[in-house]
């Protein structure tokens, strides 16, 4: 800093005097104005945040109680698993995996459709610019949070208790978990819509439904389809898990194979899920490109 002082003095106009920071006694020279990004208090606060992050990491390592033997053992176990999985039992696919896979896709799609039907009204009510009542916004947001706060496995267990095990419970579990996701993101997209076009239509005497259809919908349309597709994509993967609790789909096949230690069949199921996820990704990307 001292090295640059002379330069700074030459560049600074002689009128600005704020603080005598050096007592070199040069006549008529300007005092350098200092600038720092953070105040002392801010620096202390930042240090505190870093300190707590590190402390939390160390503390949680202690709580997890890693058993060293199991950790060192892991590579051998993984290797063993892979050997048992290879070669995959491809004959198992037409026998029982295919039907389960199709059921999974049906569950994901139907669940997403039901979720969208229920999420659109909630999203509209949650958006403060569309529905200017604070109370209604809060109630709608509460409903959306409720849907999101319950994991789809838990939803599945609830619906299995009501409807018994099977695809219906799985479909509804997917639907109810997705309402919160779609509704929240739709509400946020609506709140980010520009006021201008809506104001223009309002000024022309358009009724409320027309404001939605012509003012808001064209603005949120890309976001809406993008998030519906994303949710469908998530649901395809999620419905694979739901079978573990008996809610139908390919998860049931996976669970059965695992319980019987038929690792070559497990491999086929995992490959099938992987293929579906890849195809879903490709489809979603293509459709998104077409919509935007």
């Amino acid at each position: 800093m001292d090295g640059s002082r002379g330069v700074a003095e030459n560049l600074t106009p002689g009128t600005a005097v704020r603080r005598e920071s050096h007592a070199s006694g040069q006549p008529g020279s300007a005092v350098r104005r200092e600038w720092q990004r953070f105040t002392a208090g801010e620096r202390l606060a930042r240090f505190a945040v870093y300190f707590f992050v590190v402390a939390a990491f160390v503390l949680s390592l202690g709580t997890v109680e890693v058993i060293p033997e199991f950790l060192w053992d892991a590579p051998a176990q993984v290797q063993d698993l892979l050997v048992r999985m290879w070669p995959p039992d491809y004959a198992h696919y037409p026998a029982s995996v295919h039907a389960a896979l199709v059921e999974t896709l049906h569950m994901a799609t139907l669940g997403t459709v039901i979720a969208v039907l229920l999420a659109v009204p909630l999203g509209l009510l949650a958006a403060s610019n569309v529905m200017p009542s604070r109370t209604v916004n809060t109630v709608a947001k509460l409903a959306l949070v409720t849907s999101r706060s319950v994991n789809s496995l838990v939803w599945a267990l609830l619906f299995i208790a009501v409807f018994g095990p099977g695809a219906l419970a799985g479909t509804l579990a997917i639907a109810f978990r997705s309402i919160g996701f779609v509704g929240k993101l739709l509400g946020e997209a609506l709140e980010e819509a520009h006021r201008g076009p809506v104001e223009a239509l309002k000024a022309s005497g358009a009724p409320w439904p027309s404001l939605l259809v012509f003012g808001y919908w064209p603005q949120v349309k890309p976001a809406f389809w993008a998030l519906v597709l994303l949710r469908w994509d998530i649901n395809v993967r999620e419905s694979a898990v739901l079978g573990l609790v008996g809610a139908g789909g390919i998860g049931v096949a996976l669970n059965t194979a695992m319980n019987l230690f038929q690792w070559d069949r497990v491999a086929v199921v995992l490959l099938a899920i992987f293929a579906v996820v890849i195809v879903a990704e490709v489809v979603v990307t293509w459709v998104r490109g077409r919509i935007l």
Binding site: A200, P207, V213, F214, Q219
Partner: peptide
């Protein structure tokens, strides 16, 4: 304050939204 993602003619027809029912307009 045009509806950016609609066509020009649709934007003009937006001027009639006060006269045309929402369903017909949709």
């Amino acid at each position: 304050n045009l509806v950016e993602r609609l066509t020009v003619i649709e934007n003009l027809l937006c001027g009639r939204l006060g006269h045309v029912g929402a369903l017909r307009a949709w």
